[in-house]
């Protein structure tokens, strides 16, 4: 077994080139659970939490985008000013595990694990984020929708490192809601991110924990674009309900010990409808 702790991106990529299948350890909050339980026995570990290039975020006001390094923690994403630029991501971050987890866990780790219950992912999906990957061979960027392949499966190739994600700063309300049976420190049974884009005059809705990966709701989004008034920030009660129904219909949940598929689908409908109302508070 080996553990490498690179301090720079180039060192990290070189280490990864030597052991393309190494376990890349970011905050450790997913991977160490598996190591502790014996379910994962890594032979090579590359811990990237000291790679300074990955530990910061930058705002590009011209492009109206935020680039978030994969090593930025949830605790950092909850703080201004990034929290003001990406409020839904801040809300989602605040629901991740506990303060201890949020100090260690990173958005990059969330992407790397690619659990359908990952709290950051519905936000990245709703915002059509761009995921950046690098290896010694070069860099590439791809849409988060292409990046997320399935349950805990991504388009990351051996030898590649997730270096960050670029998210647009939208004008318009955005928020995140997540259902769990406890008032803190709970895994999402169902989650939703809704983002409105006043300039593009659209509403985006992404669903977590109700499919093999994060789902977008094309039908609900199309419906909302016509049903809401962006100027008056209004939507009728009937249409808000209809939006929830379309969201529920788009979900593809499973039954497990945490919840039934029926409950998850129901919850998605309620959350989507309530989020639309928060975005468009007037009737």
């Amino acid at each position: 077994m080996s553990v490498i702790v690179p301090n720079s991106l180039s060192d990290a990529l070189a280490a990864l080139a030597d052991n393309p299948d190494a376990l890349v350890l970011a905050g450790g909050t997913d991977a160490m659970v598996e190591v502790n339980s014996g379910h994962r026995k890594p032979s090579h570990v590359i811990a990237i939490n000291r790679v300074s290039e990955l530990r910061s975020w930058t705002y590009d006001p011209v492009a109206a985008t935020v680039h978030i390094g994969s090593g930025v923690t949830y605790a950092e994403l909850m703080e201004s000013p990034v929290a003001d630029l990406l409020p839904a991501l801040a809300e989602a971050s605040r629901t991740v595990g506990s303060p201890q987890i949020r100090h260690a866990g990173t958005l990059g780790g969330n992407l790397g694990t690619c659990s359908p219950a990952g709290d950051g992912l519905p936000v990245v999906s709703a915002l059509d984020g761009i995921v950046h990957l690098a290896s010694v061979a070069g860099e590439r960027s791809l849409s988060v929708h292409e990046f997320m392949v399935g349950v805990k499966r991504t388009a990351r190739q051996p030898g590649e490192l997730i270096t960050g994600v670029t998210l647009p700063v939208l004008t318009g309300w955005q928020g995140y809601s997540k259902v769990g049976v406890r008032n803190a420190m709970v895994i999402a049974l169902a989650s939703t991110c809704l983002a409105t884009d006043l300039e593009g005059r659209n509403v985006r809705l992404a669903l977590g924990s109700v499919g093999p990966t994060i789902l977008r709701c094309a039908e609900a989004e199309a419906f909302a674009a016509t049903a809401v008034s962006f100027e008056a920030r209004s939507v009728s009660a009937h249409d808000a309900r209809r939006f929830g129904e379309l969201a529920a219909a788009a979900s593809r949940p499973i039954n497990d010990h945490r919840a039934t598929a029926e409950y998850r689908r129901h919850a998605i409908g309620v959350l989507a409808s309530r989020l639309l109302r928060r975005a468009f508070p007037n009737e």
Partner: peptide, 8 residues
């Protein structure tokens, strides 16, 4: 719902 901000 707590931190999940599920309700008003």
């Amino acid at each position: 719902g707590g931190a999940g901000r599920t309700a008003d």
